[in-house]
Amino acid sequence: MNDSVLKIENLTKTYKLGKRDVQPLTNLNLEVKKGEFTAIMGPSGSGKTTLLNIIGCIDKATSGSVLIDNVDIAHLPESQLYKIRRDKIGFIFQNFNLLPYLNARENVELAMELAGKFKGQRKQRAKDLLNTVGLSGREQHRPQRLSQGEQQRVAIARALANDPAIILADEPTGNLDVNNKQEIVKLLLDLNQKQGTTIIMVTHDEQVAAQTQRMLTLNNGKILKDKQTQKSTLSGNQSKAEETQEE
């Protein structure tokens, strides 16, 4: 399981804020292997969300390359990027971002509908995924009738719908209470360990990050630390010595 699913080289992102240039990411290099569960930490403004957005093709790099499954998405036009987002990426947001007028099953189906999957096929898969995230029997409930933890589970099921190469989770536990937080982390860990799902998660919570395999710390747009935290259970790899990469 050493295949690289994400390879970033010399990634720089610059944008204008009023009259001044802001550079949230500077010459960043990163490689994520298939099946890896990576947590990205760092103070506010360190570039975590920008990095996640660029990997998720919802923001564009200023320079450098971002390879997802060996496709450089850094300079693809929007007419191509939406396909990458649809087929290769699964998003989990802090605010869940479920469509309020769709029920749980329809929210999960939405991602598959955008991928052009047939109604019967996507309905069954949505039910299976909701079952996987522990929401069996809650398919018909709209988001407002679900707890926050349940909403995030629906969002996780939706992220998995098209069997993406990478799940990008932007502070998925940020809006949850302690119990729900732990359940969501456990769910993500299960997905990673049992199904080999590659997950990159931005979090402020060290306890949450500590449960992942790899913890990156960003500061001023650069990776300050890159730390392997625990065994890679799915692949059975040997526990790695703690590494720290300072850039």
Binding site: R86, I89, N97, A111, L114, A115
Partner: peptide
Amino acid sequence: TREIGTLKALGASSAA
């Protein structure tokens, strides 16, 4: 707007 962002993040094309 956020819903549009979500739809795009999920892979909705501009045409969709």
